[in-house]
Computed example of a mutant assay.
Amino acid sequence: MNRTFRIYPTILGIALLICSAAIAQDVKYNFMPGTNFAKYHTYKWISIEGGAHPNQIMDAEIRQAVDAQLATKGLTKSSDNKADLNVGYQIAVDQEKQWNAYGMGGVRWGGGGMATATQSTINIGSLVLDMYDPDTKQLVWTGTATKTIDPSNNQEKNQKNLDKSMEKLLKHYPPK
């Protein structure tokens, strides 16, 4: 009995699903219980001492993405010391190995087609966004977005990825 099964479209679909799940951004947040977030109307940027920061271009891209999202939440950026909220961030970029596999030919019982796998290195970047109450000097909100920072050469792709991840990260700000 010699049956040829054409399962490559199914395998390809499953592989694409796995790959898209693997590169999906992961966001987490936490906040200080009992905080009245309704009192925050303005914010200013601060540097987190000892935190890792990118080059000036990526710094501007990150701030632009966060500024856009905070504006949708009704917060106004301030440059003076009278802001209701201090906002800072830090980043980390690690590398992981990724395997890309593909096959050719049909799959048969008792036999098989040809398959090849290649290895590549991908950058996995995390961004931690912190918000502090300047009066109490306490952390009131923190969020982490992983698979957000990619130091690639494609600036449009980087900005789109940052915008998407900051929208996802700040979706639940202010907490209910």
Rank of each mutant, 00 (worst) to 15 (best):
S152K: 10
P174Y: 05
S120K: 15
M104L: 11
I14R: 00
D84F: 01
L129Y: 03
T144W: 03
A52I: 12
A115W: 10
I18D: 01
D26C: 08
A101K: 12
T42Y: 07
Y173V: 03
E49M: 10
P9Y: 00
N2V: 12
K137D: 07
V27L: 01
D150L: 09
I11L: 15
N2L: 11
K137T: 11
A115F: 11
T142Y: 09
I7A: 06
F37T: 04
G105D: 03
P174G: 04
I14K: 03
A101R: 12
D135E: 14
A38I: 05
V107W: 13
K168L: 10
S152R: 10
G13A: 13
M32W: 06
T136Y: 01
L127Q: 03
Y43K: 01
K39T: 13
G106S: 14
P9D: 02
T148F: 05
T4N: 09
D80R: 05
N86C: 05
V87K: 00
P151Y: 15
Y102R: 13
A83P: 05
A83H: 00
F37G: 00
K97Q: 14
G112D: 05
P175C: 09
E61I: 01
G125F: 02
V87Y: 00
T118Q: 10
N30A: 14
T76W: 00
I122D: 04
L170R: 06
G74A: 05
G34T: 08
A115N: 12
I18M: 13
R6Y: 12
L170Q: 02
K176Y: 04
P33L: 04
T76A: 07
R3F: 13
A92Q: 09
